[in-house]
Design a binder for these strands. Structure first.
Length: 278
DNA sequence: CCGAACCCCTGACGGC
DNA sequence: TGCCGTCAGGGGTTCG
C-alpha cells in the first residue's frame, strides 16, 4: 500500500516525537517477512535517534552505551505505523499488530494484515547503504542527480516496458504502482513502451513527472485509497488528484477517452490510450 | 546478466 | 448466507 509519499508522510508524522526516546519494551506478534535479527531484550534502554528514510524503507536508529544499530522497517502492501504519545504500558495487541516499540515518549506500533512488511535489526550506526536490502536501490527522486539523463541511462538497454522499469526501483526509488501510472500519464508516455526506446526528451519529461507527482502526493499527505493513515491516524488526499490509477472505463480528465486497464508483470496498469503514446 | 514467473499473506468484494 | 475466484498501494527469490 504505501509508496514513497506515504512512507515519508508516516516518517514525518512521528520522527520528532520519538527522537530521543528510551526503549522500555519490545513486543513481537506474528512473524513478518524476515526475523528481527536481534533479541528484543537487546534493545532495552536504547536511545532512539533521528528517523530517516531510504526509498520505501524507514531507518530508526537505536543506540546503547556499548552497542549501536537500528531498525530497518518496511510497510509492505498493507502495513502502517501508529505512534501514540504518553502510553505508560503496552496496550492489548490486535491480531495484526506485529511489532510494538514501547518508549518513554509513547508507543510505536506496526500493524500489517498481510505481513509483507519487515522490521530488521542492523548493527550499523547510520542508515547502512550497503545493507543487502538497500544495496540495489536507485536514486532518491528528490536527489538533484536524478534527472532526465540519469533516467535515460537507466532505461537504456532494457527490453522491459518502461512502467516495469520504473517499478523495479533500481533507477529511481519510490514510485510504486499508483505513482508510476500517474507519472507516465503526466509525461504522455504509453506504459507499454520498451524502456530502451524512451527518447532523451521524453526521459526528461518523465523524470520531471516522477518527481512532480511524488512531490504533489507528499504535499497532499499521501494517497488514501482504502486505509492509509499517517502515524497519527490522518488520511491522505492525493486520491482526489489521481488521473488514471483505478479509473478503468472512466473518462480521461484531459480528453474524455475511457481509461484502460492492462496487466504488466502481474500488476494492473492504468493509462489513457489517447494521451499516452508509444 | 536479464526478464518472467512465483511466492509470501489476509481481507474485501462480486458473482452464483 | 456461503463458497469461490479475483484483486490489492511490494518486492525478494527462483528459474529459464
Amino acid at each position: 500500500m504505501p509508496e514513497l509519499p506515504e512512507v515519508e508522510v508516516t516518517r514525518r508524522s512521528f520522527a520528532q516525537a520519538i527522537e530521543g526516546a528510551t526503549v522500555l519494551q519490545l513486543r513481537l506478534g506474528k512473524p513478518l517477512r524476515w526475523p528481527l535479527g536481534v533479541a528484543p531484550e537487546g534493545l532495552l534502554g536504547g536511545r532512539v535517534g533521528a528517523v530517516s528514510r531510504r526509498g520505501k524503507y524507514l531507518w530508526l536508529p537505536v543506540s546503547k552505551p556499548l552497542e549501536t544499530g537500528g531498525l530497518l522497517m518496511h510497510l509492505g502492501m498493507s502495513g502502517s505505523l501508529a505512534f501514540t504519545a504518553g502510553v505508560p504500558s503496552l496496550p492489548a495487541a490486535g491480531p495484526h499488530d506485529h511489532f510494538d516499540l514501547l518508549t518513554d515518549r509513547g508507543l510505536l506500533r506496526l500493524t500489517d494484515p498481510r505481513r509483507f512488511g519487515a522490521v530488521v535489526w542492523s548493527p550499523a550506526q547510520a542508515l547502512p547503504p550497503a545493507a543487502p536490502l538497500l544495496a540495489s536501490l536507485g536514486l532518491e527522486p528528490f536527489d538533484p542527480r536524478f534527472n532526465g539523463e540519469h533516467l535515460r541511462a537507466g532505461l537504456s538497454g532494457r527490453r522491459v516496458a518502461v512502467k516495469q522499469a520504473l517499478l523495479a526501483g533500481d533507477i529511481v526509488v519510490g514510485a510504486g504502482n499508483i505513482y508510476a501510472c500517474e507519472a507516465l500519464f503526466l509525461a504522455g508516455i504509453d506504459p507499454r513502451l520498451m524502456a530502451m526506446k524512451v527518447s532523451r526528451p521524453r526521459a526528461e519529461r518523465l523524470a520531471l513527472a516522477v518527481r512532480g507527482v511524488l512531490a504533489q502526493a507528499l504535499e497532499a499527505g499521501g494517497t488514501t485509497l482504502r486505509d492509509f493513515k499517517d502515524a497519527h491516524g490522518v488520511a491522505g488526499s492525493f486520491q482526489m488528484q489521481v488521473q488514471v490509477y483505478g479509473r478503468e472505463g472512466q473518462p480521461c480528465r484531459r480528453c474524455d477517452t475511457p481509461i484502460r486497464r492492462i496487466v504488466q508483470g502481474q500488476r494492473s496498469t492504468f493509462f489513457c490510450p489517447q494521451c499516452q503514446k508509444k
